[in-house]
Nucleic acid binder design. Structure first.
Length: 574
RNA sequence: GCGUUCGUAGCUCAACUGGAUAGAGCGCCUGACUUCGGAUCAGGAGGUUGAGGGUUCAAAUCCUUCCGGGCGCACCA
């Protein structure tokens, strides 16, 4: 249930049914009519731009038209107690007490499903997909949380969501990784010195993986790298994926499906996919021009298969084959996405790091080509996370081996804070993450602030010896909200709008923002009680006003729903 | 050079994707509470939304030209 949608459809119908009376001829742009939350300083529940949208195209005065619409609405919708027309032609609506009570009781009944809509789409969301050459670092963390919460959000609305991880366990960098493990094993077994070369991974975790392999595979023959490569690759990847899965688990993230690039190659999916593209003549044999600007060192102009991604909005066509005729990373990735398409998802979502921005056009082009533009691939980019501690920035660099890992982070900060803070910014903006701030138990720390609101509510229920699961409702006869409660009610009504737009626009950051604002209203109300007994919720160990308690109950419901989507815990006592 | 993204209060960011007087937090100033209804609350100062031009009843938001920052620009992954 969304009261805005609810009443908007009623308003629309009334306007349509009475277009002659309203002297409306042109209604083409009526979809632009909306029903919104009025700005704070207006004391109304709903606000509509209906007159502004229709006046211009019908050559009418917006104020007069608004007055006409107002009269109709007042007559036809008994939930509207009062409507005022405000310049330049907004309709500001106040709901009747009956309407408030009805809507509130509906929420009290729905509880955990409040804010969700019945959507039935099938989503695949690929996220993290960190290279399996080592543990996760902080940079991965943001995309990981983002993807996970987005999944929660889409599931909350009733969609089916597959959380997927693409393992890039193929190609040169894996070779380098395996070689690094190999050399570490030799170091341990034969006391050979590990010499850091350009492409090798120097990190200590490689030693751990090596040691683990030795422990569990005593008979492994490591005389010759090429001979034991396949076996060692398998073992090394197991080691690094375990590290990654361990980190993910600690962050509260679990994927439904891990898709291996090596498997994809083994199953010959790339050939099949390229053939499919060839059949549609989106592939040609030819030469590519060197990129403009700086020309890469090893540039060679040779004949190869090329995907005509330009036809789908990319800046240039893209190579499917390398110099030696083997497939490029891109070719494999196309095959992977073709596999996703064949698994019949309505929507594909990829969560990428900022360094992959340039990749978006070509992969969406490929998905369009392979699905006849039927399947929509939506790529969301998470910008960098900048770590701070006492105002001093941390450097991260995976190659140097001195990166800040998720594990390091988790040693200092709990999962709840990480999850909340990673989303407390829009994804396309850089994020400053201050180690110290998120540990504070003050208003500076939004995680704490929201949790604390919930804990306070629970201190009431403890005193009253009631349970937040108990059924509760309010009554028109007694219901008399004070100014604080009015604000709270309006905020609560906004919740479905937030979850809906967060899901539609794939912007989960709206949720922490909203929860913070809701908590602010609660804390203000609570503090008023300290100042003025009239505003206290409890008197002599009993509920002072049942209806007031019901409103606090509403806050608990919404905070609970929101934090569940965020995957952040809610202690009842702090 | 090309692509992409961002530019909003001293700082970090929101703004229901075109709505009304652009909102929060931090910091600053003033006040309340004086400890489990605790870790807060109330108020104040602070803005030509990077600059110019355009579209619109209405622009931070759309178009355009600049300026500035990030990321990317392979046959790597």
């Amino acid at each position: 249930m969304n009261i805005f949608e609810n009443y908007l459809s009623k308003i629309n119908k009334i306007i349509l049914d009475n277009k002659k009376i309203l002297k409306l001829k042109i209604l083409e742009n009526k979809d632009n009519i909306n029903l919104e939350v009025p700005p704070n300083h207006f004391n109304y529940d709903l606000s509509s731009n209906a007159s502004l949208v229709l006046a211009k195209t019908n050559n009418l005065n917006p104020i007069n038209l608004a007055e006409d619409i107002k009269n109709l609405l007042i007559k036809k919708i008994d939930h509207f107690e009062n409507i005022d027309v405000t310049a330049p032609g907004f309709l500001n609506i106040k709901l009747s007490k009956d309407a408030l009570v009805l809507n509130i009781n509906e929420i009290l009944k729905n509880k955990i499903s409040y804010g969700s809509k019945k959507s039935k789409k099938n989503y695949n969301i690929e996220f993290v997909s960190a290279n399996p050459t080592g543990p996760m670092h902080v940079g991965h963390c943001r995309g990981a949380v983002f993807g996970d919460v987005l999944s929660n959000l889409l599931s909350f609305h009733g969609n089916k969501v597959t959380k997927e991880y693409y393992i890039n366990d193929y190609g040169n960098q894996i070779r380098n990784f395996v070689e690094s493990v190999y050399l570490r094993i030799r170091e341990i077994r034969f006391k050979e010195k590990f010499i850091v070369k350009e492409n090798l991974y120097p990190g200590d975790y490689i030693k751990d993986i090596a040691e683990n392999i030795i422990k569990k595979n005593k008979s492994l023959n490591i005389e010759n790298f090429e001979n034991c490569f396949e076996k060692l690759k398998k073992l090394s990847l197991l080691g690094s994926m375990n590290l990654i899965k361990r980190d993910l688990k600690k962050l509260g993230i679990e994927h439904d499906n891990f898709f291996s690039e090596t498997e994809l190659v083994k199953k010959d999916l790339v050939n099949k996919t390229v053939k499919k593209l060839q059949a549609k003549s989106f592939v040609e044999e030819g030469y590519l021009n060197p990129p403009k600007g700086e020309i890469p060192k090893n540039w060679k102009k040779t004949k190869r298969l090329i995907f005509k991604s330009k036809e789908f909005g990319d800046d240039t066509d893209r190579a499917l084959q390398k110099n030696d005729g083997s497939w490029t990373y891109f070719a494999n990735d196309i095959a992977y996405h073709f596999d996703k398409i064949n698994r019949n998802y309505d929507n594909l979502i990829n969560i990428l790091g900022a360094d992959h921005t340039g990749y978006i056009k070509r992969i969406t082009a490929a998905v369009s080509a392979l699905s006849n533009k039927k399947v929509n691939l939506n790529c969301k980019v998470c910008q960098l996370v900048k770590l701070y501690k006492h105002g001093k920035p941390f450097k991260m660099s995976k190659r140097a081996g001195d990166f800040i890992s998720v594990q390091d982070l988790l040693n200092e900060v709990n999962k709840d804070s990480i999850r909340f803070m990673m989303l407390n910014r829009s994804n396309d903006v850089e994020l400053d993450f201050d180690f110290e701030k998120v540990k504070e138990k003050t208003k500076d720390n939004p995680v704490f602030y929201v949790q604390y609101a919930y804990a306070r509510i629970n201190s009431i229920t403890r005193t009253l010896k009631i349970n937040l699961d108990d059924p509760i409702s309010i009554n028109t006869k007694t219901f008399q909200p004070n100014e604080y409660e009015e604000k709270i009610i309006r905020k609560i009504f906004e919740w479905p709008k937030i979850t809906e737009s967060a899901a539609d626009k794939l912007e989960p950051h709206k949720i922490p923002y909203y929860l913070y604002e809701l908590s602010t209203l609660f804390h203000a109300y609570w503090s008023k009680g300290n100042e003025d007994k009239k505003f206290r919720l409890i008197e002599n160990g009993k509920s002072r006003k049942k209806d007031s308690f019901a409103l606090i109950y509403l806050i608990a419901i919404v905070i609970k729903n929101g934090m569940k989507i965020l995957g952040v815990s809610l202690p009842e006592k702090m």
